[in-house]
Simulated scan of single mutants.
Amino acid sequence: MLNPQWLRSFATLARLGSFTRAAEALDLTQAAVSQHVRHLEDSLGPLLIRRPRAIELTPAGKATLDYWRELDEADQRLRGRLADEDACQGEVGMITPGGIGLFVYPHLLDLQAQRPGLVVRHRFAPDPDVLQAVLDNRYELGLVTLRPDDARLASCAFLEEPLELVFPAAEKVQQWDDLRRIGFIDHPDGQAMAGRLLSRHFPGSAGVRDLPVRGFSNQIGLLLEPVARGLGFTVLTQHARRAFPRQDEIRVLDCGSPVVDTLWLIHRAEWPLSARAQHVVEHLRKTVGAMKPKLAAVKRAAAK
């Protein structure tokens, strides 16, 4: 690879047309500039024609100058990416569990609509996949339901998310036998969520594994479809339930004291968030902040 200092001296000489002025601009001696040009010509052939009061570039000299300009532009692009000066340009990736993803993704699209230069890349995934994707630097931001203990990950509390037991609107749920009769619609986090909520509302019951499974879906956006059709009940997050369009076909069991999961925002701890990612986090925190009074009202109602 050609020495960048030699190329810089040659480009400055071509711009100013004088070895003396080039040396002054570069804070070098005239002999040093001449030596740099000579090194390039030893590798590339004649680059310029020296005249008494001017210099003229040869075709090889013009090609070398174009090459330097391409290198300089690439250097500026690299420095711009590393400096990350513009928070409203470029791509930002975020990976989340399904329930919160249904809440987050529309707000990410709102931000993208406000900032056309921003490209949002979002993926739904369970907690283990979220952790691995952030560790592998495939996504800069992630949300998980359990705070990671990996030193490579920075985490902070992001949002509280209540769990809900959702059943068909035509059914009645008052006791454990009602759940056994209706049956459970499972999903990747279903056993864990149902275990926490049912043990709180039905203490002493046999547990979620005692319930017949009437169906399974790994698509959180479709999970309430079998519930609405009367095929079973499920346990999922409030955000996922609110995203279902046919609310009149489902009901939420009043479980008294709510079970609330804390969602943790994670990113790699070894380097700072990009300006784009910080902009996304600030936007989402404003959205979450507007929701906190509603969540507080849920807790107060349950405490009465």
Rank of each mutant, 00 (worst) to 15 (best):
M1H: 09
L2D: 13
L2P: 04
A11R: 02
L16S: 01
L16I: 08
A23E: 00
A25T: 02
A25H: 00
L26Y: 02
T29N: 07
A31N: 01
R38E: 09
H39T: 12
L40A: 01
E41F: 12
E41Q: 13
L47D: 11
L48A: 07
L48G: 06
R50L: 06
R50N: 13
A54E: 13
A54W: 05
I55F: 15
I55D: 07
P59M: 04
P59S: 10
G61L: 10
T64H: 11
D66A: 15
Y67K: 01
R69N: 12
R69G: 03
E70A: 12
E73F: 03
L78I: 14
R81A: 08
D86M: 03
D86S: 07
A87D: 02
E91G: 00
G93P: 15
G99N: 14
I100M: 12
F103Y: 15
V104F: 14
V104W: 14
H107F: 15
L108S: 06
L109G: 07
Q112K: 03
V120Y: 14
H122D: 08
R123Y: 09
A125F: 14
P126W: 06
D127F: 04
P128N: 08
P128F: 12
D129T: 15
V130T: 06
A133E: 10
A133Y: 11
V134Y: 01
V134R: 02
R138M: 14
R138V: 14
V144L: 01
V144S: 02
V144H: 09
R147E: 09
R147S: 01
P148N: 00
A151L: 07
R152N: 07
L153D: 03
L153H: 01
C156M: 11
F158L: 05
E160M: 14
E161L: 15
P162N: 06
L165E: 04
V166H: 06
V166Y: 05
P168S: 06
E171N: 10
Q174S: 15
W176Y: 01
D178M: 08
L179Q: 04
L179A: 04
R181D: 10
I185C: 13
I185W: 06
D189M: 13
G190I: 11
A192R: 15
M193I: 09
H201T: 14
F202C: 10
S205N: 13
G207A: 02
V208M: 01
V213I: 14
R214T: 15
R214Y: 10
G215S: 09
F216T: 04
Q219T: 12
E225A: 11
P226L: 05
P226Q: 08
A228C: 02
R229F: 08
R229D: 03
G230W: 08
F233M: 06
V235W: 12
V235N: 10
T237W: 09
Q238W: 05
H239W: 15
A240H: 12
R242T: 13
A243F: 07
A243L: 05
R246P: 07
L253S: 14
L253D: 13
S257E: 02
V260M: 02
T262E: 12
T262F: 06
L263A: 10
L265Q: 02
H267W: 09
R268K: 05
R268A: 07
R268N: 12
S274I: 01
A277H: 03
V281P: 07
V281S: 13
H283P: 11
L284W: 13
L284K: 13
V288I: 14
P293F: 05
A296S: 00
V298S: 00
K299Y: 00
A302S: 09
A302W: 13
A303F: 01
K304D: 02
